[in-house]
Amino acid sequence: MKKYDILPHTADGKFRAWGRTLEEAFANAALATASLMWDWEKVEPKLSQAVRLEGRDREQLLVKFLGEIIFLFETRKFLLASVDGLEIRDVPDGFFLEAEFRGDTLSDRRDIHGDVKAVTYSEMKIDEERGGVVLQVVVDM
């Protein structure tokens, strides 16, 4: 199954990510976001970063989850290589997400080819289709 597709957008970055489950689609959306900044397939999954966050709804959960990639890159120079053990649970106020980011610390700035600055709700779609989930996200670049 295809993980994601980068789509044309006038000013910014837009992608669609797929998964058999919401969790798998979220993990693929993380890789799509990373792909706009670096080649995640070439990053060694040496280090681990725990991610735990809550969202009032699935859209907010997705914005916060992808925002974590930007935050870890800007503040810890962390490059995402893979997403492990992603779980999404219903909680009284919405949803809770837990995952493990694996990756490495940036050593050569030339490995960075783009700058994702924020994750937006613009044109966001979370569609559960028969046998799978499709996410669409626009990020500010």
Binding site: R56, A118, V119, M124
Partner: peptide, 28 residues
């Protein structure tokens, strides 16, 4: 830079939580 982007992100979330977004044609 990232500081301004985070301020925008934070308050889009906080305002959405406080006032809701269901009546808006666009959540942004």
């Amino acid at each position: 830079r990232g500081l301004g982007h985070q301020v925008a992100t934070d308050y889009i979330e906080l305002m959405g939580n406080a006032f809701g977004t269901s009546g808006l044609p666009d959540r942004e």
